[in-house]
Design a protein around this nucleic acid. Structure first.
Length: 423
RNA sequence: GGAGAGAUGGCAGAGCGGUCGAUUGCGGCGGUCUUGAAAACCGUUGACCCGCAAGGGUCCGGGGGUUCGAAUCCCUCUCUCUCCGCCA
């Protein structure tokens, strides 16, 4: 969330920048500023009363100890009014804070100054485009048929076991999954990321801290009996490693990579968007997360973007990179690059990665800070990106690499799969 | 799941209901000494809120309560440890 201090000192700027995200903030921000003023006034009054009470209590203590019981009891009588008044301010303060917090957590992050304006995905800026898009032959087969033809992914059986969106990977299909995961993890290790294995369920506090709650609660599976959420991405548990931490500035940037299964309800999706591997309820993803110094977080964002495009290049997939417009950006992000691969038989771009800088938006909720060179405590920046999400990579590999003899595995993957063709 | 014990500052570990934000040790930082280092000695050492500042307020696992006053008493939740049971 945005910090109150920033909103108070830059009220008009905040409203202007939120407009780029198509968030009409005039009323909301006005209310926040108003409540914040009330909060500070009430806090001051409460503090004064506490100070008076503290003084009285100390005096009473001294009197009791020196045996002046009568005088002590006399003073005690005076504390009643303070108590009543203090309680009143306390209740008022709690209610102000509660309302303030409820409003504040629903205000999206401010977009970076380079974010293009726009409302729909059509307004996203194509910043990079690489690889030949070979027009699909009429004979090109979409991946959902290839998976059946080679018996590598079984949607029907997954449907029986669980439901739609939970496929069963079999034989070379399963081995391709494992190969991709290993490839992605090994590449990340080479790039200096530390591997972590996070929990697949998180508590509400963690989901709040990275911004999944309250904004996107319908997106997550919730385990009611234990009040836990299945992670929609490893970003949630991995970033929360650093919740309530004050790091050493010299340790930044911290680079973590995690493989995890991801669970998403995807309520309301339909049609060709969800066909085959295009959108699943459970899928595999390797996620990179960095905790950065505010001064170089944008340099790190570029570096992460380059890292992800490097993976796509090694996989020999045609791809493009989009800088998302204000209207298409997520609630929490300040700047996002999406990577899309070309899926030849579907003749469409598939999003396989999203790399974002959240600046202090998550850190404010996480209470994630660091001590800089001068000993001052600052809020850190958080960034993350998929590197990469598997299903659509698999879809593109299957479709783009189909030959009469079978599906060709990209060279870099062969050492991980142990086979060169799916046939 | 059953029985018991506990949760205090970076760590260890004190704390009769009253000057305790908290003794002490270690660690960290600064200094004296030294050619340098170690040792020794001296000093220093948390976070949050309000405030230009002075200063004030809050925080001893979380929440609530008793009291003029709570780290200390009561209730509750969470977590950790020991024993038993179950178990990949």
């Amino acid at each position: 969330m945005l910090s109150l201090n920033f909103i108070r000192e830059n009220t008009l700027e905040v409203i202007d920048r939120l407009a780029i995200k198509n968030f009409n903030a005039t009323e909301t921000i006005g209310r926040i500023v108003d409540l914040d003023n009330q909060r500070r006034e009430t806090q001051k009054k409460l503090d004064d009363i506490q100070a008076q009470s503290n003084i009285l209590a100390k005096e009473i203590g001294v009197l009791f100890q020196s045996g002046k019981v009568a005088e002590a009891n006399q003073l005690k009588a005076k504390t009643g009014d303070l108590k009543v008044l203090g309680k009143e301010y306390d209740i008022a303060l709690e209610s102000i804070k509660k309302e303030l917090d409820e409003i504040l957590v629903r205000v999206p992050n401010l977009p970076h100054s380079s974010v293009p304006p726009g409302k729909t995905p059509e307004d996203n800026l194509i910043v990079m485009h690489e690889g030949e898009i070979i027009p699909a032959a009429d004979t090109a087969v979409p991946h959902w048929d290839l998976t059946t033809k080679y018996d590598i992914i079984d949607f029907i059986t997954g449907n029986k076991i669980t439901g739609a969106g939970f496929p069963v990977y079999k034989g070379k299909g399963a081995r391709l999954q494992r190969a991709l995961i290993n490839f992605f993890l090994e590449e990340a290790l080479k790039a200096g990321y530390q591997e972590v294995q996070p929990p697949y369920m998180v508590n509400a506090e963690s989901a709040y801290a990275t911004g999944q709650l309250p904004d996107k609660d319908a997106q997550m599976y919730h385990v009611g009996l234990d009040d836990l959420y299945l992670i929609p991405t490893a970003e949630v548990p991995v970033t929360n490693i650093y919740r309530d931490c004050i790091l050493k500035g010299s340790d930044l940037p911290l680079k973590n990579v995690a493989y995890s299964a991801c669970f998403r309800r995807e309520a309301g999706s339909y049609g060709k968007d969800v066909r085959g591997l295009n959108r699943l309820h459970q899928f595999d993803k390797v996620e990179i997360v960095q905790i950065a110094h505010p001064e170089n977080s944008y340099g790190i964002l570029e570096e992460m973007k380059d890292y992800v495009t490097g993976l796509l290049r090694k996989l020999e997939l045609p791809f493009r990179v989009l800088k998302l417009c204000g209207g298409d950006m997520s609630f929490t992000s300040a700047l996002t690059y999406d990577m899309e691969v070309w899926s030849s038989a579907q003749a469409r771009w598939l999003e396989v990665s999203s790399v974002s800088n959240f600046e202090t938006f998550q850190s404010n909720r996480l209470k994630l800070r660091f001590k800089d060179d001068t000993g001052k405590i600052q809020t850190a920046h958080t960034l993350n990106g998929s590197a990469l999400a598997l299903p659509r990579i698999v879809a593109a590999l299957l479709e783009n690499n189909q030959t009469p003899e079978g599906i060709r595995i990209p060279k870099v993957l062969v050492q991980y799969t142990g086979f060169e063709m799916i046939d």
